[in-house]
Design a protein around this nucleic acid. Structure first.
Lengths: 343, 343
DNA sequence: ATAATGAATGCAAACGTTTGAAAAAATTTA
DNA sequence: TAAATTTTTTCAAACGTTTGCATTCATTAT
């Protein structure tokens, strides 16, 4: 009663004066077990709250049914949507997700990967941290590759690694967003860029630049300012844009958060959106539809990414040895709302 | 080279024609091992990418260093803040967090708890799902208690369970919010309530009701409408409020999301905030400071809750047997911003 | 009664690691 | 050179479970 040691098969065996094998078979409904024995043992097991020790089974079968999800953050809508997608597919298959948050920190990422391998995780979904990306380190991944643990990149990738990958087409999403602003008639479009070095930031930035070029519009250094993807980080940059001698008439934010930050500053200055200033975000976060005015944005199918990534993993696990890595790129979709609809 | 079986201590022992014990001791810097042997073995181990199998160690030591975090959702700011708090304290201590999302589903919650126990998780942080709460089921918890696995409730609780618990003082937060609206001079205050049955919803609701009563203001059924805590769910209810013969002049939203939904509807109707309509939310989510007007709200220290919950867990683990359960209630704080500052 | 069958159970090894105690090997001391 | 000491290594058991094979026991057929 006061001993909290979990009851084991051996305990039950002692109680019934039989061998552990018999108990194991009884609990697993093995046919070669006497009906009465089976019933008695099962009943007793239920009574004393027996729960099979999965750790020992993992050791025996070399299967842990657990997967690692290593992400830089979980405080954005998109990341949680991805996790939800992974969950939707993998949970019903008996997998447990081990979510590790690196806070964009290389050392933590490294430690997590090592720990996951030590715990014999059967697969790893990785969105590399910014620090890792910046530094160009990749030794911590070699171990994963060497061990042939399936590794699926989410969003961020190393070009020179042979792995599967699921990504949103940030480039074309950004391109479409800027093209839309141009089509409406905005002439001078600024960009609140995401953190340097991240694939998502750079791809969106590239979409922005290429679109301007396509329409023979100048790409002006002073119209491109960095943020860290958080609301606050858009405040100062936006003020700087508005303080310019000839300020932009539209802003393309690298995500909804910074667009919303910009929206606030613009309105504070008494400018009207979209008449005086056009505004586009990225993510299609739930709140973007309910700002005032509602925010034109680019949808990013996080849930789908999670589900696709799961599929890639399952392919790799179930497939034969000569498995070919896939690179899934899901389209992003421009969602036109009030913040850019100047008539 | 092509065999992906992880290299074990036995493999290394074979290679050096020594016993596994020697290898184990060499890798762990045991003093009774010859310096040369140690160096050779360590070098070779590094070369072949040896990583200790933690599963076998878990079995041996009956320690898994993994903790379960069972929450209904991770798509809100608050929940992720809590997880971050847990993380901050527990990660450096070597614990791995196993995050399980129940989607407010009883069966899933039950399955997760059972799985966590089977995996010999050393502690569980639980915010029970709404379904569980509604149904009043608790058998799935008995197992946890019986096994003496430390169980820390976060926010939601069962009154009749002897466990530790960390919570925000929703009641007084809500009370303060409504009192603030009254002090400003708002006369008819509506409430966009959270899902019925949840402690957080009910406590905030109770704070609202009690505050009205304190100031001899009537509690009117038709001014209290349910939402599901999401932005969209505030739209129809707010419209219904505004369509009333004599509509309210202030709205207290059960969280920031619904307050922001309400804000949108109110502005669509051409009403001014805070002049024609006062508005208060709950959570102090990052975006609430940057809406236009910025949203008066009640801060909810999610990070702190996570850290406190960690502390409760550690107390229970390190403490002596005659451990007394603690019930931490952190204060929430009214953050006054523009949406309620009618002068 | 005995051999042959079938049903029910037990034995032992395996998964990978650690660890106290014993053994072996090397070194020092007398 | 033998004994004593120290250093280094090995043995064996343990963690909890499963499973092929061997064993026991009861039943049936001869």
């Amino acid at each position: 009663m006061n001993s909290s040691r979990p009851v084991t098969i051996k305990d039950i065996a002692r109680r019934f004066r039989c061998s552990p094998s018999t108990v194991s078979r009884a609990l697993n409904d093995h046919p070669a077990i006497n009906e009465d024995t089976r019933k008695n043992i099962q009943e007793y097991a239920r009574e004393v709250g027996y729960q099979r020790n999965e750790v020992s089974l993992s050791l025996l079968n070399k299967k842990t049914a657990s997967l690692g999800v290593v992400v830089p953050t979980i405080s954005n809508y998109y990341e949680t949507a991805v996790i939800e997608g992974l969950h939707t597919v993998l949970q019903p298959m008996g997998y447990t997700l081990n979510i590790c948050v690196t806070n964009e920190n290389y050392l933590l990422e490294k430690e997590y990967l090592s720990k996951l391998l030590s715990n014999r995780t059967e697969g790893i979904f990785l969105s590399v941290s910014q620090e890792t990306y910046d530094s160009g380190y990749y030794e911590h991944l070699e171990n994963v590759i060497q061990r042939k643990t399936p590794l699926i990149f989410i969003d961020r990738e190393y070009e020179d690694f042979e792995t599967s990958r699921a990504t949103v087409d940030d480039y074309h999403g950004a391109f479409a967003a800027v093209e839309h602003l141009i089509s409406i008639g905005y002439k001078k479009i600024a960009h609140l860029k995401g953190p340097n070095g991240l694939t998502v930031s750079e791809q969106r930035f590239k979409g922005y630049v290429d679109c301007l070029k396509k329409y023979d519009m100048p790409v002006q250094e002073e119209l491109i300012i960095n943020t860290n993807f958080k609301v606050e980080s858009a405040i100062v940059p936006t003020k700087r844009l508005l303080d310019m001698a000839s300020p932009p008439d539209a802003i393309f934010g690298a995500n909804d958060q910074v667009a919303i930050g910009a929206m606030r500053v613009v309105k504070d200055r008494g400018l009207r959106i979209p008449q005086d200033m056009g505004l586009v975000g990225f993510d299609n976060s739930p709140i973007s539809a309910y700002t005032f005015p509602s925010l034109t944005t680019v949808s990013r199918p996080g849930r789908k990414i999670g589900m696709e990534a799961s599929r890639l993993f399952l392919n790799q696990v179930n497939g034969s040895g000569d498995f070919v890595h896939e690179n899934i790129v899901l389209p992003s979709e421009l969602i036109i709302r009030e913040s850019s609809l100047r008539i």
